[in-house]
């Protein structure tokens, strides 16, 4: 239906050319139902990435926060604590510079830097290309440090197992209310820089309560990447997630193996090999 005049597209054609020009409706106008998710392309890339991580039994975490929350310092300490235990890798997202990847490599962990230029977030397509250069560590953890931004990264699934949001005590405790989307999209919140609590006016309980208004299921740990306080809980969480990822992959492989061996048919006594 023409929205200018309300006529149906099958309406008589106006033959007078000059009339046709003043009347913007063309009989050839038609509606097409699209029903497409605007993020469909990103989500398709994310699904590809997710499959890749699952096949490698790799736990991938998307770390999000404001600039200056101590993400890289937290990462460096985490890597140092786990590097003898698990294969690890890091993909760093920043608008400019390779500083963060260099800090990670100094710990002896492979790291790749993505510079987004004007971009305010990483997307699944960028990450997919990064994975061509840096393979997900088999049976280990890939940390993706997103661009420091509490707004934009929330909408973009990278194919990660979970988003982890980091809030530091030098920021306002009401940040979860000011930037709700990222807290809504995350599964775990780390409140960092607790060594500075005596010097700042920040109530961790209030911050956690605010964050849970947005996301009642959000888990939260308090820690300090400088002193190491509270790290046990965070490392314990990582090990737990890692075990889950491995368990899922082992089950998948066992099912595949059973199928290949024809185990089910043997058990049923219907084997062709008998």
């Amino acid at each position: 239906m023409c929205t200018t005049c309300g006529c149906e597209s099958e309406a008589p054609r106006i033959d007078d050319e000059s009339m046709a020009r003043t009347h913007t409706h063309s009989p050839a106008t038609r509606r097409v139902a699209v029903e497409a998710d605007i993020l469909a392309r990103n989500n398709a890339h994310a699904a590809e990435n997710r499959k890749r991580f699952a096949n490698a039994a790799c736990l991938t975490l998307n770390l999000v926060s404001s600039p200056g929350s101590g993400k890289t310092t937290l990462l460096v300490r985490t890597l140092a604590a786990l590097k003898e235990e698990l294969p690890l890798a890091v993909i760093e997202g920043d608008q400019e510079t390779r500083f963060d990847a260099e800090r990670i490599r100094a710990v002896g962990i492979p790291a790749l830097q993505i510079n987004t230029g004007k971009g305010c977030h990483l997307d699944a397509h960028m990450l997919g290309h990064a994975l061509e250069k840096l393979s997900p560590p088999e049976g280990g953890i890939l940390f993706v440090e997103n661009v420091g931004n509490l707004v934009c990264p929330s909408a973009f699934d990278l194919g990660e197992a979970a988003k982890v949001v980091i809030l530091s005590v030098t920021e306002g405790e009401d940040k979860p209310l000011k930037y709700p989307d990222i807290f809504h999209a995350s599964r775990l919140m780390l409140i960092n820089k607790t060594d500075l609590l005596p010097h700042v006016d920040f109530d961790p309980e209030k911050a956690t309560a605010y964050a849970r208004r947005i996301n009642p299921q959000l888990q939260a740990f308090l820690l300090s990447a400088t002193s190491g306080e509270g790290f046990d809980l965070w490392l314990g969480w990582l090990r737990e997630q890692m075990t889950q990822v491995k368990t899922v992959r082992i089950r998948q492989l066992e099912t595949q193996l059973a199928l290949l061996k024809g185990g089910d048919r043997d058990k049923a006594g219907a084997s062709n090999h008998a």
């Binding site: 038609r30 699209v34 709700p180 605010y210």
Partner: peptide, 30 residues
Amino acid sequence: ALADPCPQCGSFQVQAVGGMEMRIKEIEIE
């Protein structure tokens, strides 16, 4: 809004379940 309480009971134990759509519904073409 994500940070709003339940309009019925005032609780903040509310998980968003709708209103996150970003869709192209339809287009008109010539």
